[in-house]
Design a binder for these strands. Sequence first.
DNA 1: CTGTCTGCAAACCATTTGCAATCGT
DNA 2: ACGATTGCAAATGGTTTGCAGACAG
Lengths: 141, 141
Amino acid sequence: MEIEETIALLKSRGYRITPQRVAILRILKDNTNHPGVEDVFRSVIKIYPNISMATVYNVMEVLEREGIIKEIAVSNVSRRYDPDVNPHGHFICRVCEKVFDVSFSNMRSLGKYSPRELDEFVIESLELIYRGVCKDCKDKT
Amino acid sequence: MEIEETIALLKSRGYRITPQRVAILRILKDNTNHPGVEDVFRSVIKIYPNISMATVYNVMEVLEREGIIKEIAVSNVSRRYDPDVNPHGHFICRVCEKVFDVSFSNMRSLGKYSPRELDEFVIESLELIYRGVCKDCKDKT
DNA sequence: CTGTCTGCAAACCATTTGCAATCGT
DNA sequence: ACGATTGCAAATGGTTTGCAGACAG
């Protein structure tokens, strides 16, 4: 999606188009480095030397909420542990925050879990995460 | 793996078998709740009222390092963002911490990404994470 | 104008660190 | 006895919050 389109989308949803937001959009556009908040901050501060981290957090949150960017679970510092170390997936319910196991064998073949692109990489572990709403929480609505 | 076996394994690798470690092992054994450090702490403090969070962190780290438990990326509070919101996977290099994109189409069919187990669940997003060592870092060794 | 957004500073809070006392081997 | 481990307290650092002033619409 073009920057202009994204801006129009945000505007149509009632967001104000501030220069800081535009700057961050430009920084993110076609960025393949999976930047963190700090990375974005370091880029945008060159253009707006007074911008604060709080604003970057705020903008990232808006963009994520509107589906313009996606948070990825890179963090090593996660908070949950699984005593089952066999490869399997997880479903995380956005409402109750419960974590459900999803066995690989029940998935329509994840194959040998080694995509061509990673041919020369050493794959040490694989994690598959579904997010959404679990049956119980869905039924309660 | 039985508790006794796990203890033997740890011992054989030079770790000391403290009652705190045994208690945490018991708590984790067959635990399907994907507990966080806080959860483990709340359980173990009933047995050892003086145990500290630092010890729980320490024990969890040991167990993870020895492959007895696995950290999972549940955290909503992640640190990296992707401007590409189309479903695709990521490879995270443990050495340089770079994040590489892995396209779904290049993977040997992840299928419609809806396992039978989740039939009644609302799947809103899917994340696939490979961890290991990337080509560049491997070559530098 | 009006209400949203920014930027600053302080608060938060999960995790980490330093260290003396304790305990497993 | 020796060195690893614990538990306490303090430090850390990323993220969040509160709020007054700035600014987009």
